[in-house]
Structure formats: structure tokens, C-alpha cells
């Protein structure tokens, strides 16, 4: 019963992907269908036209195996090994360093701004 429920909920979630794909096509949006589907579900939940219980257990089941669904894409890297031969090898450290910088700056800025607004609140509470 638990599995039937999860399966039905996953099908419902897939419905949002289809809605997203359709909206993308129809409105020529620059975002992929799955992200539009995410936004549509979020709006539907916030406006209370869609209930959390209808998809909650299915979504947690799906999310607990999230890395699995990336495997077909990551295995695809095997086709481009030749680009990273010779000088191309440098592209790997370039990507890694740039990723570090991105992570460092974005995390430090959001943390800094969040701490600052907390402090402001504390001051105004006094």
C-alpha cells in the first residue's frame, strides 16, 4: 500500500514536469520544464489549491535516491575524455578553482548578510 501510494504520487509529480514542459513550449521560457514544474507546484501549494499530503511521501522517496538519477548524465562524460587530453587537462583545475571561488564568495556573502540582519533585529528588540 505504501509503495502504491508513493508510485501514484511520483506520477502526480511527473504531471508537473509535463505541465512545466508544456508551459515552456507555449510561453518560450528560457527555463527547463522540470524547474518550471517546481515553481508551479510551489505556487499551487502556497495558494492551497494543491495539498502537501498528496505528494509529500512520494517526493521524499524520490529525493532520498536523488544522486541515482544523475548517473546516466554523469556516465556521459566518458564520451568527452579526448577534450581533456593534453592542454585540455588544464580545463579541469580551471573548473575546480572557479567552482571553489563561486562556493566561497556566495556562501560567505549570504552568511554575512544573514548574520547582519539577525544582529539588526537583536538591536531593534532592545
Amino acid at each position: 500500500m505504501k509503495y502504491i501510494k508513493a508510485t501514484l504520487q511520483i506520477i502526480a509529480l511527473y504531471g508537473f514536469v509535463l505541465i512545466g514542459n508544456w508551459l515552456q513550449d507555449f510561453l518560450h521560457l528560457p527555463l527547463p520544464g522540470s524547474i518550471i514544474g517546481l515553481l508551479v507546484l510551489l505556487v499551487a501549494l502556497s495558494m492551497k489549491v494543491f495539498r502537501l499530503e498528496w505528494v509529500e511521501s512520494g517526493s521524499y522517496f524520490l529525493l532520498s535516491y536523488l544522486p541515482l538519477y544523475f548517473i546516466p548524465a554523469t556516465v556521459g562524460v566518458m564520451k568527452y575524455g579526448h577534450v581533456f587530453a593534453g592542454k585540455g587537462l588544464l580545463l579541469i583545475p580551471i573548473t575546480m578553482i572557479s567552482t571553489f571561488l563561486t562556493m566561497w564568495i556566495s556562501s560567505i556573502i549570504s552568511q554575512f548578510l544573514a548574520n547582519k540582519s539577525v544582529k539588526k533585529e537583536e538591536v531593534s528588540c532592545k
Binding site: Y14, S34, S46
Partner: peptide, 28 residues
């Protein structure tokens, strides 16, 4: 890789609903 993707595409199919699922922690 193309032969592997005959099966891979079925696993890939779950990525869409999984991304949509991220709306749940966001909403909560």
C-alpha cells in the same frame, strides 16, 4: 554510451519529478 542509454533513459526519466520534488522542502 548510446547502448547504455537504452536503459539509462529510464533512470533519467525520474530526474524531472525529483527536481519538482524539491518544491516540498522549499515549501516547508
Amino acid at each position: 554510451y548510446e547502448t547504455y542509454m537504452l536503459g539509462g533513459m529510464w533512470v533519467d526519466l525520474l530526474l524531472g519529478p525529483a527536481i519538482v520534488s524539491l518544491a516540498i522542502p522549499l515549501y516547508k
